[in-house]
């Protein structure tokens, strides 16, 4: 056994109707582009609904974090439908509950508070991402 850095798949809510869906998505983009580029990757959630082979391979071979935008929990339920246990599931609203000074607004595009909150959320998830990325990999 040896340790090597793995990809960590972070899948957000796909919603286009609520601010917390947008917050979930923006948090993933912050992780991918600023906080842990090259480590965090994502896939389109609906690809799992059509059993896309590449998307299934990605979530089967790497640890998965889901960020849901509402209690329906589409992101983690769609992953678990394929028999994959997610390493961590978050509710985007909890990011706001922890940082009430940053009330997010906007749906299609987040407002400034929303973008700041996504950046904070991504920073807070970095530690978990690092732990999952450093997990033991059998060689």
């Amino acid at each position: 056994m040896s340790r090597e850095t793995r990809k960590v798949v972070v899948i957000p809510c796909s919603g286009i109707g609520k601010v917390y869906g947008a917050l979930a998505r923006e948090t993933v983009y912050e992780l991918m582009e600023r906080v842990r580029p090259g480590v965090v990757v994502t896939t389109c959630l609906p690809l799992l609904m059509i059993d896309d082979p590449e998307a299934l391979q990605l979530i089967t071979g790497n640890p998965v974090i889901t960020i849901d935008g509402c209690p329906s929990g589409c992101a983690h339920k769609n992953v678990e439908t394929h028999g994959i246990k997610v390493a961590l599931t978050c509710q985007a609203i909890n990011f706001y509950k922890a940082h009430k000074e940053l009330k997010p607004g906007g749906i299609a595009e987040l407002d400034e508070n929303g973008r700041k909150l996504a950046a904070v959320a991504a920073d807070e998830l970095a530690h978990t991402v690092d732990e999952l990325a450093q997990g033991e990999v059998e060689k």
Binding site: C13, S14, I16, L45, M49, S72, C74, K77, N78
Partner: peptide
Amino acid sequence: TICLPLFIAG
């Protein structure tokens, strides 16, 4: 509208 993945999760 409806969120597409709700077809499975809803």
